[in-house]
Write a protein that binds this DNA or RNA. Structure first.
Lengths: 142, 142
DNA sequence: ATCACTGCAAAGTCTTTGCAGTTCC
DNA sequence: GGAACTGCAAAGACTTTGCAGTGAT
């Protein structure tokens, strides 16, 4: 068992979740990919037969609840998941071919403070979703 | 026929879509509400039996394609739609009770220019989705 | 007259639920 | 041992598709 895997174990256990082979493999996928991935793709990426699709759904739900993963909506008709280890992480999506690139640092903190000030009915903002939808150069040529 | 409805007719016709009672009613709902609404809710808001759910799905697709409406994802498990007449329009969502408030002016233009500069594979950004997820005061107390 | 829009039924996709058996701590 | 996790089957929710009939321009 290598270093990386031991760290994943620690992460999972720290959230009071049980460490199982499936969860370790899933979290490892998310960490290594560092980009959003669907449930289907996760199932296919794992060794054949290791995990049922339903189990992956449930694992992702508990990861999201525990703050280990994030849901991302890229308008692909399903929810994608990504590791929550890097924060302030956003996406640039080509609406024609679906291609995704990442960017960091959206400088949103000031805006959030401002919005909270103007909306006294809200106490706090834990998360923000920011995605840019456009056209990539190769689709532009078509 | 009042002024507002005539303007809606003009908007629809300008996009080379046919003006029908259902589309007029739908666009009027979106304009008056000025907040995101689901397909289900739209069907219920219309006079009973006026439009089939499938027709509303198709009408919204053509509105989005024509730039009359926008899709919004508030993590409610379905897509919401809102009028596209106000631009730079965003949402503050309570992850506990689902309550939604709006805010304008996210000041994203500079960020978008910046991101495009750093991602030469992308030509342009037509749209951006920005939603803040947090907790409202009444859910905070629980 | 033509092409777009509509309703109804059916199918498709993504996601959740129930329950019995298994695994982790 | 007990609570949490898993697989399989089934159901549920949201959305799309096909086709025949209607309506807008």
């Amino acid at each position: 068992m290598n270093h990386a895997k031991i760290n994943l174990q620690v992460s999972i256990r720290a959230k009071h979740l049980k460490v199982t082979p499936i969860r370790l493999a899933l979290l490892e996928c998310l960490e290594q990919l560092q980009k959003p991935i669907s449930i289907q793709e996760l199932v296919e990426l794992l060794p054949t037969g290791l995990a049922d699709q339903v189990t992956v759904y449930r694992a992702m739900q508990s990861f999201v609840k525990a703050g280990l993963a994030r849901e991302v909506n890229l308008r692909h008709g399903h929810v994608d998941y990504e590791s929550a280890s890097s924060s302030d992480h956003h996406h640039l999506v080509c609406t024609s071919c679906g291609r995704v690139e990442d960017f960091e640092e959206c400088g949103m903190d000031e805006l959030i403070r401002d919005v909270l000030k103007k909306h006294p009915e809200f106490s706090q903002v834990q998360e923000h979703a920011l995605e840019l939808f456009g056209t990539c150069k190769s689709c532009m040529k078509k």
